[in-house]
Design a protein around this nucleic acid. Structure first.
Lengths: 119, 119
DNA sequence: CGGTATCCTCGGAGATACTG
DNA sequence: CAGTATCTCCGAGGATACCG
């Protein structure tokens, strides 16, 4: 039963923003409209499937807007919603806080569990 | 090669705060000092291993302070560092933003990939 | 009591191929 | 071009048991 522990907004936001891509996508989108392939190019390491999934998640959350242009070839544009734009400064604030955080031993490329247990 | 895509602070913070527990733990700790078993009691669903791991992560990031009292039985107290306390209002801001976000169709207990594709 | 080590499982996420 | 479906695999994370 992977329920939410406490139904607080914090836990809900984190469910949307957790992971490597959501915040990055918001960032790439803050400059304006981007096509799916643009975002793909911005994040070369994200898989096709993941990108679709993350964008859907953000869309369902009301952060990102998806606009389809029928035709050939197909064309889909993504942009931040008004609400989504409000998220940008908050993420910025987190970044600033992090930079000033003393002892922020700049993170290893990827935190494996082993990185903290072993070594 | 699961490197960071862009070495921006955002991606680094998210690496620490991503997941279900980090923000919750910060929240439980904002009230003051807590023992390991307290935190365990606060989050009944977190596993022993996970709790240890998440606390280590927060400690290494300089957000949480760990204090061991030798003796029997052993006793360990956790608290927010000065820097960690600075995180609390930021998390609050996220929560507020989320609450006001229109179309915030209050999230399902857990977002499965299937929840967005299938259903 | 708090932490670590070991085992095991289940689902997150990559690769690939196909549709509109 | 954008999205979905299928298959596969690896590792995050639970359960358990044992130390200081």
């Amino acid at each position: 039963m992977k329920d939410l522990v406490s139904y607080c907004p914090i836990e809900e936001v984190m469910q949307v923003l957790s992971g490597r891509w959501p915040t990055l996508l918001v960032y790439y989108l803050k400059d304006g409209v981007k096509r799916f392939s643009d975002l793909k190019r911005d994040n070369p390491t994200v898989s096709h499937k993941m990108l679709t999934f993350e964008l859907r998640k953000l869309e369902h959350a009301g952060i990102v807007q998806r606009k389809v242009f029928e035709g050939y070839p197909l064309r889909v544009e993504y942009s931040l919603t008004a609400g989504g734009r409000g998220l940008v400064p908050l993420i910025d604030a987190l970044g600033d806080w992090w930079d000033q955080l003393p002892g922020a031993v700049s993170m290893q490329p990827k935190i494996h569990q082993s990185a903290l247990t072993g070594e």
